[in-house]
Nucleic acid binder design. Sequence first.
DNA 1: ATCAAATGTTTACGCCGACAACATCAGACT
DNA 2: AGTCTGATGTTGTCGGCGTAAACATTTGAT
Lengths: 210, 210
Amino acid sequence: MSEAKSSYHHGDLRQALIDGAIAEIAAGDPSQLSLRAIARRVGVSHAAPYRHFADKEALLAAVAEEGFCGLTAALTASFTTTEPQTLQQLTAGGHAYVTYALHHPHHYRVMFSSCPGPPERYPELATAGQAAFMVLVEAIIAGQAAGRVRAGDPMQLAQVTWSLVHGIAMLTIDGYLQSPDAQQVAELTALAMRSLVEGLQTPVNSAVVQ
Amino acid sequence: MSEAKSSYHHGDLRQALIDGAIAEIAAGDPSQLSLRAIARRVGVSHAAPYRHFADKEALLAAVAEEGFCGLTAALTASFTTTEPQTLQQLTAGGHAYVTYALHHPHHYRVMFSSCPGPPERYPELATAGQAAFMVLVEAIIAGQAAGRVRAGDPMQLAQVTWSLVHGIAMLTIDGYLQSPDAQQVAELTALAMRSLVEGLQTPVNSAVVQ
DNA sequence: ATCAAATGTTTACGCCGACAACATCAGACT
DNA sequence: AGTCTGATGTTGTCGGCGTAAACATTTGAT
């Protein structure tokens, strides 16, 4: 099973606790998550985590931060593999977002739960979350510059886009959409992005004026 | 403050515990919610709740059920005050949905958290959640019958609509959209529904064929 | 008046988060 | 090689938690 601890010093206990938290969430009820169970899984005493995290909430904030970094990477990757400044790029971003949530449901739940405390207490977490959102905002701005996305406040348009994919992601991973099949979720995401894009794109009459 | 208990029997302790749970959530950190704190707030011993609920999770399931009933009522009310079978009705439903979440954030969070356990354990809760969703499905079906909503699986179109408003609701009440002003949320919802409706409506060329 | 069910209270247990005090290791310095 | 300090672990403790068991009180039916 887990490799035996070769010394008193773990080496990278901080990261092991983050990984252990995800494993514990995956193994059982997220609301029953306990620091002691995580410490047992990682093979240290119940007080060892307090050498790396101020408290339980701080560990969950680190999990959320890791999740946002992964989300930003996934969004950025999807954008670099599609033609920039196009609505196809936005659609690819939507798919990447939902796919990330489906592949990392435990991270995703922690990212958007109240367990990580107020953002001002965890500036790195707030920064990571903001970075993910800004990838989206920048895509909207680029699309507007290219005349493909309608005029308007890019923050607001990005918020609408985010709301849609977040809704799909949350409702899917929590089993509300009754579409456990990845194919069905992809179809739903495609439909959603298609509808949204129709609403976001620049009306035909004004595209050339851009 | 709270009326003095006139007898050993509370009278309607079950409902008082549900109300007390909401009050406790409103007063502090949702993740710190405890049955004992709820019992203290209601003025009974820590074991009294076990006469009305199997456990803490069952109490939260009752809170969620109450929330879904309220949501269904809000959606239904918005539908009866707008012209049926129109995209305006869908838009009104979207606003009603987001408004309900903003007015009942504590119910809304419980409704969509993992604290209420698997739906099969709480059939009334599952039924209440399904009822809210079916209001939306029926509006889509009616719109399709009137030739105003595009052809397609009404369940899927309803899921897209639900995802959008759910995303707006969740991101707003958890403070991710940085739009605490009700006016700004209404504007965002209007923009979102407008974009969505453009994608959902029947393309002009095929409307008359319906 | 009696009885049973409903509904409350008190007591107890094990687990939890968090803190304090102590123990051990690793790296820097001499 | 020895010493020292900081990093990083362990052990023990405390109060609060969820939950169960046993007991107490009220209510409604007979």
